[in-house]
Computed example of a mutant assay.
Amino acid sequence: MPLRMSPAPASALRSVLAALGSAVTEEIPGDPRPDTPLPIHEISRIGQRSGPPSTQLTGWRFLLHDGGGGRPRTVVGAAEAVRTPSGWSFARLHSGPYVSSTAHALEQATALPLPYQPRLLSIPELYMLTLWLHGDADAEPETGVPAASDLLVPLAPAPPGIAAHQTQRVDALLPRLTHRLTASPLLGDTAVV
Rank of each mutant, 00 (worst) to 15 (best):
E142V: 10
G96W: 12
R169V: 00
V75W: 08
D138E: 15
L63K: 10
L126E: 11
H104S: 05
A8F: 01
W132E: 12
L121A: 01
R49T: 05
L126A: 12
D138N: 15
L151M: 13
T55W: 06
T110Y: 11
P29N: 03
V76R: 13
L155V: 01
L151D: 03
V99T: 11
V24K: 14
P113Q: 08
P113Y: 05
Y98E: 06
V153M: 13
E125K: 15
V153Y: 13
D171F: 14
G47Y: 09
P72M: 12
A91C: 10
I123P: 01
M1D: 05
L173G: 09
P159Y: 02
L126D: 10
A191C: 03
G21C: 09
R61L: 13
A191T: 11
P185M: 09
L186P: 08
S122Y: 11
T84F: 11
P85D: 12
D189S: 13
S22A: 08
L187Y: 11
P97W: 03
E140H: 12
W60S: 07
P9D: 02
P34K: 04
V170N: 01
T55I: 05
R169L: 10
P185R: 05
P118I: 01
I123H: 02
Q108V: 01
R45I: 03
A164V: 01
A81R: 04
H65K: 15
I123Q: 07
R73D: 13
M128A: 13
P159Q: 11
P32N: 02
V82W: 05
E107G: 14
R180K: 14
T143S: 12
E140F: 05
L63D: 00
H94A: 02
A137W: 11
G59D: 04
R14V: 02
G87C: 05
P141H: 11
W60F: 11
L57R: 13
E125I: 00
P39R: 06
R73I: 02
R45T: 06
L93E: 04
S100Q: 15
H165N: 06
G96V: 06
R180D: 06
V193Q: 10
S122G: 09
L93F: 14
R83G: 08
P52W: 08
R71M: 10
F62I: 03
G59I: 02
L106T: 05
T58I: 13
P29A: 03
R180L: 08
G59R: 04
L133V: 00
L151V: 03
G51T: 01
P146T: 07
P185F: 15
L152Y: 03
V24L: 12
L17I: 04
L152I: 02
E27L: 11
L114P: 00
I123W: 04
L38E: 02
P157R: 07
L155H: 03
H165Q: 15
T36N: 06
F90A: 07
